[in-house]
Design a protein around this nucleic acid. Structure first.
Lengths: 250, 250
DNA sequence: CGCAAAATTGATGCCAGTCAAATCATGTGG
DNA sequence: CCACATGATTTGACTGGCATCAATTTTGCG
């Protein structure tokens, strides 16, 4: 039952694999569509163009920068890291994508993916051909609306970390953000795995790895979290949210 | 003819105001659509739901945070600043929007605008009811595609300044970015007005106003720009692009 | 002209990055 | 099963870039 507590591959869900429809109605993207008001019959159309991918293992890529863009994908299980590599060879982590979240949206404006996407643990995906889903979206107002909203939401998210926040605020916002996103998918909001390395967190938050270490340690000393290796427990949510508030609320 | 050199209200364009169609075919959003492959007959449908707004004067708001979301808008002339105000009352500048650019896209995911939009100088707008344009997009694949691409592009843009860049890199990227966007609309890329205050630039780049002042002065001492009040001339584009490259290319 | 806001310039301090080294975790081969 | 190698993480000491504070100059506008 660790699948409930942690964003890992959940065997009980995989068991549905024989029945594509049942399977898909638990799939991340379908859930998103449903929660945004799409009706069931529209979902059936969606299922006809979905392609299930995985399991991918840690380190395997979903797509790479420069690959021809043809599809977006919804994460069904696991964590996907998106990143780009600048001309100096330095990596820039763009985001971490949890179950229920969609990757590849920033590729729509262009023929090629503008970044890499790699699995951090065991990952299951639903893949949607973008040309096909565009055609379908013209027939299904609900789907079109869902895509518009997904895209719009990403614009807001991308701006969150752009501010001149302190290391403490960044880390708090990162943890609270993770917690909320996991909670939205039915995982425990208070105890979860940091599926990414400290260096990835640091890179994503634009901090030095050493700073990530120090801030986490101080958060623990101050009783806000308990952290052991990559396992994290939030022990004083209110205070953490206080720190994160400036970033998350805006 | 200063309307060619600077992003100001251009009387020669306004003269077309009597003929809505001719007027609209020079309107920013239409130009965007055309440049992305929409045909002329589709444009006529667009014109039927466009509403021309303006002139707005410096300090007047296009929309405010919390206003019910009903429309996106294309800037036709002038500069629009988008910003939010956090709980501590501090302003956060999200972006500057030049002629040809679309504002309000980040409001699609939600019933209300998540930020304020204010005119920095004399501004003309084309306003598009979003419900109406959504319906139209279902009939016009080109329009749907255009909207998808506009949204997708904004996701990428929002990430640009998120990195841990130096003050010099940020300023260079800001100036080169402005220059390119102005050039794309037919304005001079080498000599233009900074329509926003230094404090706005600083806020947008997440620097102190004092730092903006010092960096601009140093850029001038090093011969890369000539700056007089709010007028700016780029005198060594290559070097400036070298500095900005890390940010703009990624 | 005269005031208020904006912009510049100088002096100082702090947060977080950098460098360096120790510690820990994990996997491998003997 | 243990010794060792390797990479990740932590910890400490030091440094630097940018913010902050303070004072002055310039601009915009009635």
């Amino acid at each position: 039952m660790s699948g409930v507590a942690f964003p890992r591959l959940d065997r009980s869900v995989l068991a549905d694999d024989g029945d594509a429809l049942t399977f898909c109605s638990t799939c991340a993207f379908s859930q998103v569509c449903l929660s945004q008001g799409m009706d069931k019959s529209s979902l059936q159309d969606l299922h006809m163009l979905v392609e299930h991918v995985g399991p991918l293992h840690a380190g395997e890529h979903v797509f790479r920068e420069g690959d021809p863009f043809e599809a977006i994908a919804a994460v069904r299980a696991g964590t996907v890291k998106t990143y780009s590599v600048d001309r100096d060879g330095r990596e820039h982590v763009l985001g971490f994508h949890l179950p229920g979240e969609v990757i590849g949206l920033n590729a729509i404006d262009g023929d090629h993916y503008p970044c890499n996407a790699v699995a951090l643990d065991t990952v299951m995906l639903c893949r949607f051909s973008f040309p096909k889903i565009s055609v379908l979206a013209a027939r299904l107002p609900g789907l079109q609306q869902t895509l518009f909203r997904l895209l719009s939401r990403d614009i807001g998210n991308a701006s969150l970390l752009a501010g001149d926040w302190s290391a403490d605020e960044r880390m708090a916002a990162f943890l609270i953000g993770l917690s909320r996103r996991l909670a939205a998918r039915g995982f425990s909001p208070d105890r979860f795995q940091l599926t990414m390395a400290r260096t990835d967190i640091a890179n994503y938050l634009r901090l030095a790895p050493e700073t990530v270490s120090r801030v986490l340690k101080r958060f623990q000393d101050e009783g806000m979290v308990r952290v052991d290796r990559r396992e994290l427990e939030i022990t004083a949510r209110a205070r953490l949210e206080g720190l994160a508030g400036a970033i998350l609320r805006g």
